[in-house]
Design a protein around this nucleic acid. Structure first.
Length: 365
DNA sequence: CCCTCGATCAC
DNA sequence: CCTCATATCGAGGG
């Protein structure tokens, strides 16, 4: 019996939330920005509506470039309002969850629903449910979404990407091969610029070409894990279950310095602020961390990390802040030429805060 | 098997 | 003149 899996992708989500918050901007290009605070305009585009995309304004480009592309055009440049998007997301997820046998939220604007049991494997019925979900999300939240339905998560995700925005693509089990055959290999989740480059070296552009490669060649080129993933993905095979995501296993915050520097005195205030912010998130979720890391992005935009395992799991600002400062000092010492542009603090090895006091605390007292 | 770190992806 | 956040893998050292 085939599974019936649905992937729901909320269209240009941040920008659509902003359109709803202020419908007058709906007719203009809408650009949601992450301002870095370095200068008035510095930062990047988080997402944009489809009108803005017509002008080439897409996620990730510098705000300055977006302004240039839209100069002389009446456009709305808005700062991110993450609490708003999280609230809308949560309400939508609460609409979706009950429509599923099992549910998996992936990030703020995506979810998988396993609807095998309630459709009894019937893809016609699944299509009806998908239509109802789209209507429901529209009527409750005025948000459009694109939905893919397929026998597994992999193909459902590729399908939701097929028609956007406000799309619905159903790929029945017998249609999987024909559906994938036409598509470029970069449509496979996990295939980005680097993997695309390697595939080009093998003269592979499309999924059907990928499916002709010998698995040994793939493993040799991409490693055991990615290689075998690509082999199966090209055949539309995937048996990952849809399952609720537990707690995240890491938390991080990154910020941009006012100016590039390697002076710890100039770096410390931001570092401590980020450490405090991460600690806040940790405590909100009642978690402890086993390790602390710093991230340094240099003036040449190269990324470096340095991490250390703590003596014992911690959740207090002093322990995490001190560890971050220590790591930053060690990093600067190890890289005498490093000029720092941005820094981050990450905690990992998270587990639920237990009331249980670690015995090492007593041994040291 | 654990720790650390860079790379990659996708957002 | 270039944000932010998370997960995962593989390598290298121990």
């Amino acid at each position: 019996m085939p599974r019936v899996i649905m992937h729901v992708d909320l269209d240009y989500f941040y920008a659509q939330c902003e359109e709803n918050a202020n419908p007058t901007i709906r007719v203009k290009p809408v650009v949601v920005c992450v301002y870095s605070g370095r200068t008035e305009e510095s930062g990047a585009v988080a997402t944009s509506n489809y009108l803005a995309r017509k002008y080439g304004v897409r996620a990730g480009i510098p705000i300055a470039r977006a302004k240039k592309l839209l100069e002389s055009i009446d456009a709305a440049f808005l700062p991110m309002n993450r609490p708003l998007y999280e609230a809308v997301s949560e309400r939508i997820m609460d609409l979706l969850r009950p429509q599923s046998d099992s549910f998996e939220k992936v990030g703020i604007d995506e979810a998988y629903l396993d609807i095998s049991a309630r459709t009894d494997g019937n893809f016609e019925q699944a299509k009806e449910i998908a239509g109802e979900i789209k209507q429901q999300v529209t009527s409750h939240e005025h948000i459009t979404c694109s939905i893919g339905v397929a026998p597994n998560k992999l193909v459902a995700k590729i399908a939701s990407d097929e028609r956007k925005p406000d799309g619905l693509t159903v790929v029945k089990p017998e249609d999987v091969s024909a559906f994938l055959a036409q598509l470029p290999a970069v449509r496979i989740p996990g295939v980005g610029t680097k993997a695309e480059e390697k595939l080009n070296q093998l003269s592979v552009k499309t999924i059907i070409q990928l499916s002709t490669l010998n698995p040994n060649v793939l493993v040799e080129k991409f490693g055991k894990s990615v290689g075998s993933y690509l082999y199966e993905a090209s055949r539309g095979q995937d048996d990952e279950p849809v399952k609720e995501r537990e707690q995240p296993t890491q938390l991080s915050r990154i910020g941009t310095l006012k100016q590039n520097t390697r002076e710890i005195q100039e770096i410390s205030p931001l570092l401590v602020g980020l450490a405090g912010s991460v600690t806040g998130k940790l405590n909100q979720r009642e978690l402890t961390c086993k390790s602390v890391a710093i991230i340094a992005i240099l003036n040449d935009l190269s990324i470096h990390t340095k991490s250390k395992k703590l003596e014992s799991p911690a959740s207090d600002g002093n322990t995490i802040g001190d560890a971050a400062k220590e790591l930053m000092n060690e990093f600067l010492e190890s890289k005498p030429d490093a000029i720092v542009r941005r820094i981050g603090v990450k905690v990992a090895g998270l587990s639920k805060h237990s009331g249980q006091m670690d015995i090492s605390k007593f041994l040291h007292a």
